[in-house]
Design a protein around this nucleic acid. Structure first.
Length: 378
DNA sequence: ATAGAGCCGTGAGTAAGCGA
DNA sequence: TCGCTTACTCACGGCTCTAT
């Protein structure tokens, strides 16, 4: 006969050891281990009771769940992830997280475990810092869910700043450079360069453009979807990166004839015909575009510029026209002012140039006339 | 403003294709 | 078969949206 209270009990097993059990939500839960003395079992029960009262109780069954099992389930329960993100998470888990931590039970993962895993990657130098930060963020996200599921008390990912990545400022193509690139790039990509720079579409958005989305009469492009290319080479047509990505963007008038020529020569037939079709009717492959870009830049001797930098050009030029941040966000499909500001760094540089120019004019003016002190007496 | 989370871009390495 | 080009795969690095 064991000792009892309203919620838990201790009993002596045939082995002579003591087992503590208690009732949670109508279920009888046994302690994960047995105890040598009845007193030890009772102490255990009292700590469990205290945890329950503080809201800190964790199901002992959860202690058996390994990170590997939990991470797999975590991914399964996120059907809303975009395909590319799913691919990314799977490879981060497979390559960097699970080999090191996958066999550990959730409750065995301590801040020290995480710290050692994280420091180990940084020390090794592979993967790069950006990937390390990504892996850390994914682990933290998974363990946050484990906290919410009440499988662990707190998240052991507590390294300050480990989840953030620093992004260097990107170069910006000047208007002459944009046209230089457009001039020498494979002709089927010419319009892509111009649209990228002066309409500022994201690559996936350009790939999903069809004849029907381009209205040369009113001079506008409707962006309503984007194409993503997966590892296995399949294509996924989906919504743009954010809700703000669905938009109508006006085309600078001088670009209209360029687009007319492109439609004529390169776009697939029909209203649903892709603007930038690949050789087999599918959207043109990213790699083909990057290669063409690389060759074009090599031809004209520009270094370090990447296709996505065209979008910076478009944003920055648009900012220089005096567009407000709101207007820029609408044009470039950004949903936060922070994103818009990322693209406006060069405008601050430009402002400095303006100030410098003014300075020169004032300087020239002052040199032409005798110095006169400002009259501050009256 | 910052942290957390999600998404996209890039390029090295390798396989496949192809003409000489 | 060789040597070159193109296509493909994979893993990494960077950007940006959302929540707080």
């Amino acid at each position: 006969m064991g000792s009892r209270s309203s919620w838990g009990s201790v009993r002596k097993l045939p082995s002579g050891r003591y087992q503590a059990r208690y009732c949670v939500e109508g279920q009888l839960v046994a302690a994960p281990t047995t105890f040598r003395t009845k007193r030890d079992a009772e102490v255990y029960l009292s700590t469990v009771r205290a945890d329950i009262e503080r809201g800190h109780w964790v199901d002992p069954a959860a202690r058996q769940v390994s990170l590997g099992e939990y991470a797999t389930r975590w991914l399964d329960l996120r059907p809303g992830l975009r395909p590319r993100t799913l691919e990314l998470y799977e490879s981060e888990l497979r390559l960097h997280i699970l080999p090191a931590l996958g066999d550990l039970e959730l409750t065995k993962i301590t801040p020290t475990t995480v710290r050692e895993w994280h420091a180990g990657m940084l020390r090794a130098g592979t993967p790069g810092r950006s990937t390390v930060a990504k892996c850390y963020r994914l682990l933290r996200a998974i363990l946050n869910t484990a906290v919410a599921d009440e499988l662990i008390l707190r998240n052991p990912c507590v390294i300050n700043g480990a989840g953030t990545e620093s992004a260097p400022e990107r170069p910006i193509a000047s208007i002459p450079q944009v046209f230089d690139i457009a001039e020498v790039i494979e002709p089927r990509f010419r319009a892509m360069v111009l649209i990228g720079a002066f309409v500022g579409l994201r690559l996936g958005e350009m790939l999903a453009l069809t004849r029907g989305r381009v209205d040369l009469d009113s001079g506008a492009i409707r962006v309503v979807e984007q194409y993503q290319e997966l590892k296995d080479g399949t294509w996924v047509l989906g919504p743009p990166k954010s809700a703000a990505g669905v938009r109508r963007v006006a085309i600078p008038e001088l670009l209209v004839p360029e687009l007319a020529v492109h439609l004529d020569r390169f776009a697939a037939a029909g209203r649903d015909g892709l603007l930038f079709p690949g050789t087999h009717g599918q959207p043109v492959r990213r790699a083909a575009w990057y290669r063409a870009w690389g060759r074009a830049l090599a031809t004209i001797g520009i270094e370090g510029m990447k296709p996505h930098d065209l979008r910076h050009t478009g944003n920055t030029l648009a900012a220089m026209t005096g567009a407000s941040t709101k207007e820029l966000m609408a044009r470039f499909g950004q949903s936060t002012s922070r994103a818009a500001l990322i693209y406006q760094h060069a405008t601050r540089d430009r402002d400095q140039q303006i100030a410098d120019g003014l300075n020169g004019m004032i300087d020239a003016h002052l040199k032409q006339r005798p110095a006169r002190r400002p009259d501050v007496s009256g």
